[in-house]
Amino acid sequence: METLTASSHPGPQAQTAPAQATDHDDASLNRLDPAYKTSLRIGATLTAIPFIIGAVIGEQILHGAGEGAFPLPFGVLIGLVVFLALVFIIRLPGRRWQARGYNMSADRLRVVRGILWRSDTVVPFGRVQHIDVDQGPIERALDIATLTLHTAGNHNASVHLPGLKHETARQMREDIRQRIKRDSL
């Protein structure tokens, strides 16, 4: 199994795998491709644009009503929206990337995610119903993909693992598929 380990992507954030302190399982976690951060940033930018436009228009309307119609000085609303947008574009993708991790062993896939609300999911390959590898337009441009495992359970009916190199995702899909086949024969 090829992995995107911390060592292969040295950087200031890549020193320790996430949640090492509370990690009770044997194997350590693999990081996602750094391009995942870029994809989150592009997505956040695209989402932010309508909000910024809305803030500009809203401020024009509020101040257009006349001098002193709106108590705050011009630019406060826009500034707030731009600040939030910058947090979502610059700060959060890095932290989300850092919080995510996965580990694939012989018979199961473990997916860890979440900054505040952390979740640590394990799907045994023996319970996988089908496997998807999806790429959106941004992901295609960055050559990354989302691997999705579907199970028959109501909770975690589909477990998503985004931010894998496309090649890695396909390889993992093949690995999992072969293991399912071998198990059931």
Partner: peptide, 14 residues
């Protein structure tokens, strides 16, 4: 007959 196991923690839980 279970299909997956998840451990979830909110900020207080952690």
């Amino acid at each position: 007959k279970l299909h997956s196991v998840e451990i979830a923690q909110g900020p207080f839980a952690r």
